[in-house]
Design a protein around this nucleic acid. Structure first.
Ligand SMILES: [Zn+2]
Ligand SMILES: [Zn+2]
Ligand SMILES: [Zn+2]
Ligand SMILES: [Zn+2]
Lengths: 153, 153
DNA sequence: GATGGCTTGATATTTTATTTCAATAAGGGC
DNA sequence: GCCCTTATTGAAATAAAATATCAAGCCATC
């Protein structure tokens, strides 16, 4: 469940439009398949698995095979429109695709809803921690499990 | 590759001994199978997959099936002797099994060696971040990718 | 309308993990 | 000791997640 009721169709549309725009700027190809997969990822507001996408994608139209979905997801992740949630083998739309970043998430263990954190603060802490341990920083995943405000009430 | 050359056999032995001791305190059963799996996890100083453990375990002695390995790993993780590295689908021995905690790791993208971070500092920051976002805190995974000191030289 | 690069289709396979039920081993009360 | 209960391991099958490989289609440019 979402923290706030909202017009999720509009939510999806916004995500598709900004992806469209970004691809034009970058001159990468936002093909119908990739659009459709992004739409399906956004269709649930919680993380979705590749095989769930596959099933939705195959509904009605011609069936597709796993590589089709994984390739589309690879593209969307590379462009920063989608993040992968490692601890759930699932995918989720990025709330801020204009700025490339790693996904830092909180995951509700009750409703499975995820919240992407604005990394501003944490990012520096994490990057410093890496350096203090002698590592150069490339990227990071942070997945915090807990119970969201909604589910605690 | 390890950051420091060290007597890794002693390293394994220490891990086994402290696991043994902790199990006695907790009155949990550190069976020969679980001992052997822990030993195998420690046998590489980098993360090892369940199926690599399976293969090593089956070497010489009678063959075992995947659930045997996964169940042993589940136990070792529950007791805090082993952590799972989500981004690698792999497992690694915990450097501080006496104190229960989530694994926070740096992973070298060159040599695959991992370093477990003492969470003291980061843990609080992460827990606070969760609370600021309205989540109660249960646990977290942090996996930082970068290049270790050794590999940069 | 041929060429070359990217994208998708199609098939098969690999890798990772779980379900289910049976057999065995350990611990507790008598 | 023996019976009973529970935890652990064995065994077979299957599920879930991801990738490898090669062929076909699309599209821009020459
Ligand atoms: Zn994002
Ligand atoms: Zn919730
Ligand atoms: Zn640890
Ligand atoms: Zn390294």
């Amino acid at each position: 469940m979402l923290n706030h009721k909202h017009d999720h169709d509009a939510c999806i549309e916004t995500a598709l439009e900004s992806a469209q725009k970004i691809c034009e700027e970058r001159e990468t190809r936002f093909t119908p398949l990739r659009q459709r997969v992004l739409e399906l990822v956004w269709s649930k507001h919680e993380p979705i698995t590749a095989y769930e996408v596959l099933e939705l994608l195959s509904k009605g139209q011609k069936k597709v095979a796993p590589p089709t979905v994984y390739r589309a997801l690879d593209f969307l992740i590379a462009e920063g429109f989608v993040h992968r949630i490692e601890s759930l083998n699932s995918f989720v739309g990025c709330s801020d695709p204009a700025h490339k970043h790693q996904g830092h998430f909180m995951i509700c263990t009750k409703c499975r809803n995820v919240t992407e954190m604005n990394e501003s603060s944490l990012h520096n802490v994490i990057e410093n921690a890496a350096k203090e341990n002698g590592y150069s920083y490339e990227n990071s995943i942070l997945e915090i499990a807990g119970v969201c405000e909604n589910c605690r009430n």
